[in-house]
Structure formats: structure tokens, C-alpha cells
Nucleic acid binder design. Structure first.
Lengths: 209, 209
DNA sequence: ACCTGAACACCGTTCAAGT
DNA sequence: ACCTGAACACCGTTCAAGT
């Protein structure tokens, strides 16, 4: 049993988040509990509620680490701003980005899934520090989108959101078996269709610089 | 307290599903419990487990009713096969279909949200009777899509799935505050962009009959 | 045959009492 | 000051015992 000043507040927080993520990874969000986390780090559940506001707060901090992990997973494959010459290559880059997200979701199913199985009350906005992590993901996508649709900020914003939400929808419904795919259909083939045609529609009247 | 043969097995099932849906509507999926459902219908929790396999089975039956409700909500607005003359009208029809889904999700947030907050283990496929209800929704979409992209069965299947999963992704991330929309951006404006450009891409080399 | 009610092994959350 | 441990009001699931 840990004693006072064995760890600082921030150390306990970090230990709890790490142990909680391991727990979700192993047993899924439905098997997650604050009491198990407390036991895993050698404290009682009372200490956890001393350091976190409540259950939502704990899950939010765990999911934030998953968002960081997802971002670095994607940056590992898409570090630079890329070549960006012809349209065909831009399509490929966007498809690869979608495939990368799907890979992450598959390889880290329980952690990825917890990102969406947990929701705050609909009138409670996500905390700013959490929203910023989502924003960092969009920055990555907007960078890949810029060579395709141009530098207009508002259009980049909206297009990145449409595209990413759509890719996420395909990924989510597929991995949770809610799309009843058959034969050649895979999440990758569906996102390919999405990207090819959505981008073709977007660039249809633009000069192909 | 109810006594044996007050109600048949199927009656108890129906009562439980109705009471469970009311409960989710009022307190959300996270506030749902089998024990509360049992109390609401005047039986003990033991009876519920006599009639349902387990917690998943109860939720699945409740969600199935929500799917039925969603289908009839959409059929109410899109009963016939529609006019289907020029491309512009087809776009409008698809946008209206998306807006209809978003309306349903907003007006029935807790029930709609439970559809996705609850997931079976990733290796456990959804029961067939549940998959058929999802299939019925896709039939509606495919009917609206046919005048736009033609009668090819495989293409209709895939296009309906891409489009619907994308619309769902936009709806889900928006209503759960995970897209950080600003200014003029709404789920409707995002699905409009999706539909206009995705369909434009799809039909770009087709003869405009 | 059907339903109950208790039992078991859990939950989130709070807070007086210890060190 | 920090942490514990018990308390409270809950969970899902099972099953012997009643009617």
C-alpha cells in the first residue's frame, strides 16, 4: 500500500492513466473500472477520486493519451509535407492516410473504440485540452489536403472535417460489424471510393495546377 | 408483483423492451440497467434473465426497435421511389435523406446514441435478425441512389454503404462534439458537401440520362 | 412451470477517521 | 496533508427455494 508522498499528485495521475489504458487495451471499455485502476497502481479508489474529478475525467485523460498515440502513429508514416505533384499522387496520399487510420483502429481496437463508446452528456462540451488534440489530427489532414484543393482556410477546414468524419464513419461501422460487407468490400475499398470521388467532385471545375 | 401466467414470455419480452427504450430515452445508455427495467415492468431481475440471454441481448432488442423506429421515420418522409428526373433533384433527395437521419439523431439522441455506444465483442457478429434491420435501411438508400448511378447491384451496394457510413460519421462526430465546428459549419452543410462532391465524382464520366 | 429473493462479486462516489 | 477504509446506493448474473 502506497503512503503519502510516495508519489506526487501528477505522478499518481500519470500512473492511473497508464494503468487505465492498459486495462482498456486488455478488457475493453465495458470492462474498465476506476476500482481496478486503483488496485493496479497500489492505491485505493478514494485516492483516485482525490486526483480526478470523476469517472468521465479519468476516461477523458486516458482517451487523450490514445489520441496522442494515434497522432504519433500517423506522423510516423506521414512526417513531411510530401511530394505533392499530380492529382493521382495526392489521391494516393489521402488513401494511405485513411488506411493508416484503419490500421490503427484495428491494431488498437479496444483503445480506439473507447474513444467513441464514451460520450459526455450532449450539452457538456469536451474540455479545451481535449479538443486541441483532435485539432492536431486535423492539422495533419489539412496539410495533405492543401496540395489538392488549394490554400483557402475555410475550405480546408470544412473539407478536412467532411473527409475525416466520413473515413471515421466507414471505419467505425465496419469494425463494429454494422455495415454487413460482402465479397470484395473492405474498409479500404470503401474509403478509396470515398476519396476518389469526393476529391474528383471537389476539383472538377478547378484548374489542375 | 406479477405472478406466473400473468403474462406470456413474449409479453414480458415486449414489456421489457418498451420499458428499456423509455429508460434509455430518459437517462441515456450509461444510466440504463436491467434491474431498473425489471422494476419498471413489475418483475424481478431474475425473470428478465429467464427471458433474455444476458445484458447484450436486452440492449440488442431495444436497439432493434430503435432501428425500426428510424426506418419508419425515414419512410414517412421518403415513401415512394420519388420523381427522379434531373441530377440536381437527385442530389436534393439524397441531401434530404441525410438531413432526415440527422434530425432523427437529434430528436432521439439517447436512443440513437445507444445504437453505437453499445458494441458486441469484436469477434462476435451481430445476430442475423439485427443485421436484417440494418439491411432494410440500406434498401431505402439504394432506392434513392438508383436514379443517380444506375442499376448495377454491386455498385449500388458499395455506394450506398460508402455514402451512409460517411453521413453517419459526420452526424456522430458532430453530435458528440468531436468535430469542433465553427461558424457556418453544420452537420447539414458537411453532408451537403459530401453528397454533392461524391456524387459529382461518381457521375463525372457517365452520360447524363 | 414460473417467479422470487437472496447471494455473489462487483460498480461510482463520498467522507470521517487515521497517520 | 494525504490516504485509507468503510459506507451508501447501486450493478450483472445465478440459482435454490417457494407457489
Amino acid at each position: 500500500m502506497a503512503r503519502r508522498s510516495d508519489h506526487t499528485r501528477v505522478e499518481i495521475k500519470a500512473m492511473a492513466v497508464a494503468a487505465g489504458r492498459d486495462l482498456i487495451r486488455d478488457v475493453g471499455y465495458s470492462g474498465f473500472s476506476a476500482r481496478k485502476v486503483a488496485t493496479a497502481i497500489g492505491y485505493t479508489v478514494g485516492t483516485l477520486y482525490n486526483v480526478f474529478e470523476n469517472h468521465d475525467d479519468i476516461v477523458l485523460h486516458i482517451n487523450a493519451v490514445t489520441l496522442d498515440d494515434l497522432l504519433s502513429f500517423m506522423e510516423k508514416r506521414f512526417g513531411g509535407s510530401g511530394g505533392a505533384d499530380v492529382t493521382q499522387n495526392d489521391h494516393q496520399a489521402l488513401k494511405a492516410l485513411a488506411a493508416c487510420y484503419i490500421d490503427y483502429a484495428r491494431e488498437n481496437y479496444n483503445c480506439w473504440s473507447a474513444l467513441f463508446e464514451h460520450n459526455l452528456a450532449p450539452d457538456m462540451p469536451l474540455p479545451d485540452w481535449y479538443g486541441e488534440k483532435i485539432g492536431a489530427l486535423f492539422t495533419l489532414i489539412e496539410a495533405r489536403l492543401k496540395p489538392v484543393i488549394g490554400p483557402d482556410e475555410a475550405e480546408l477546414r470544412q473539407t478536412a472535417r467532411v473527409l475525416w468524419a466520413s473515413i471515421h464513419g466507414i471505419c467505425a461501422l465496419t469494425l463494429t460489424n454494422k455495415l454487413t460487407l460482402v465479397g470484395v468490400e473492405t474498409p479500404e475499398s470503401l474509403t478509396s471510393s470515398l476519396i476518389e470521388n469526393y476529391i474528383a467532385g471537389l476539383t472538377r471545375r478547378l484548374p489542375d495546377t
